[in-house]
Design a binder for these strands. Structure first.
Lengths: 289, 289
DNA sequence: CCTTAGAAGTTGGCTATACAACTTGCCGAA
DNA sequence: TTCGGCAAGTTGTATAGCCAACTTCTAAGG
């Protein structure tokens, strides 16, 4: 089995997850105290999210053992002073992230301590690099405004005649080139990008600060051979296999915000997904796209 | 931006279904009719799953337009004769799969007709190939029982001295080699596998028929250079970049069922993920694993 | 000893209701 | 015209209860 590494510790970083909200209703009024753990607990957002964060911490602290069983929903509800519905919502999150099992008739079992990354970390190279403890770098190699191609009009939902901003950026970890990023923004977004310096670290963060909200993204992953430009920029041999990620992001209303093709040097990055039988969202696809 | 293709695939889901009303009786026992579409509708499982399947069909048939808005939860509940909670569960499925948006204050919007694959199709090469309309093939090149390594004991949760069955299989589409699969099964599972013919198509299906239930899986994706064995089996040049997928599956109780490393020829397969902001999803990782 | 029936415990699924948070469009005032 | 604010509409979060489906353990019976 060759070069598989031992897989040492729990850095087992998989996750996936879908929004699976089992919602149960019924009115009453509760204004629960939010002081579950000692110290700083998640203090924003819905109760079930806080609960989930809390339980994630407990699980990762080994509170229930590694293959241990969780308390029942009923007792958790009582313990935290919430309804069973809220507990179920919280557990659905953990389940979606692959931390616990879930099956009718028996208690939930701890699967592992998957570290979940934020949406931001998946979308933004900078955010990801920082979370890894690496120093992200960026150098804009090329940038211009031009009419959108037919493919771009379709993907970005533009009208004929609309323009796009295309940007070619080299991304680094420390001083080492790691990825080459070809991004196309609709002009509305591009207008913000064009004003930035060539070494601006994170376009995503700038957009975020400008009030652009990223809500959904699609990522397609495959391999592609390095062309001449790739090889030159990344400092590799032409023809070597690069890990390609095509990503497309939309705002909360479903309006496309960017379309990007990123090419990573081998060994610099990998993608991980957790997938449960109840709901699957990763798709294996034929060929490129 | 070179080889990007326009991206108009699948969507051959023709299904015009005039919803025939379900007359039901509120305030008594409810025995819901399941005749939502015309002919064969999903007839097994929970109501919200049927509803989701039904709505998926409607969406893909363009019932609501491409960027159209869905009816409100309330009206859907009334239309289908279920409670709002059930409708929400159904919509959560569609949302998780990236078909619709979901935000407070406004109707849901159709994002696209992302074809979702089943859990099975992600786990099983054979199931995937068939769903693509391709003819899957398999040739077992090597198979033996041996003591588990330390890494395997950890990943498969085995005790010292336990044995595993290792299998090397070449996978084909039609007659063309596409993927080389190195799988390790715990002996309990391996016992079933060893009895199979070398050209048995789907180990997954055999196991399924033997009562082995796959519930969760983890997939890690990156690039690796073809070694001598890879090159020979797949008929490619040594050193070429292969798309590597490491997958690990567990049963409903969280017990590991297999650990596999699959290497795909470039251009034969890609992986796609949808990710929404509310909950993080796919994880990008440093280095191999 | 082994098998089977049953009870207890647990999660899945559905309904009903209430309110909070947010978006959108309308309308009136500056 | 433009701006602000209000009202209606819609989804998000939470509670409460009921039953079904399933797992597990125990105890009775062979």
């Amino acid at each position: 089995m060759g070069e598989r590494t031992a897989g040492a510790l729990s850095a087992l970083n998989l996750c996936f997850s879908e929004d699976f909200e089992v919602t149960l209703y019924r009115g009453g009024m509760v204004d629960k105290a939010l002081e579950w753990g000692g110290g700083s607990v998640e203090t924003e957002g819905a109760q079930y999210r806080k609960l989930a964060a809390n339980m994630r911490r407990e699980i990762e602290a080994g509170e229930f053992g590694n293959n241990g069983r969780l308390p029942s929903e009923e007792s958790l509800a009582e313990q935290y002073g919430v309804s069973r519905g809220t507990v179920r919502n919280a557990l659905a999150l953990l389940r979606a992230n692959g931390l616990v099992t879930s099956r009718r008739g028996t208690r939930r079992v701890v699967l592992g301590t998957a570290r979940t990354q934020s949406f931001q970390e998946l979308l933004s190279f900078t955010a990801w690099a920082r979370a890894q403890g690496e120093e992200p770098g960026a150098r804009t190699m090329h940038s211009r405004v031009r009419p959108a191609t037919v493919a771009e009009r379709e993907v970005l939902q533009l009208a004929a005649g609309d323009e796009v901003t295309e940007v070619l950026r080299l991304r680094l970890l420390g001083r080492v080139p790691v990825m080459l990023e070809r991004t196309v923004y609709p002009s509305r977004i591009g207008a913000v990008i064009e004003r930035l310096a060539a070494d601006n670290l994170s376009h995503t963060e700038v957009l975020d600060a400008s009030g652009v909200v990223f809500a959904d993204s699609e990522h397609t992953i495959d391999v592609v051979a390095a062309n001449q430009t790739d090889a030159q920029m990344l400092g590799c041999v032409e023809g070597v296999g690069l890990l390609r990620e095509i990503r497309r992001a939309t705002d909360p209303a479903g309006v496309p915000l960017l379309w990007s093709e990123d090419r990573f040097l081998p060994g610099t990055v990998s993608f991980a997904v957790h997938n449960s039988a109840s709901v699957s969202s990763l798709a294996r696809r034929r060929g490129i796209r």
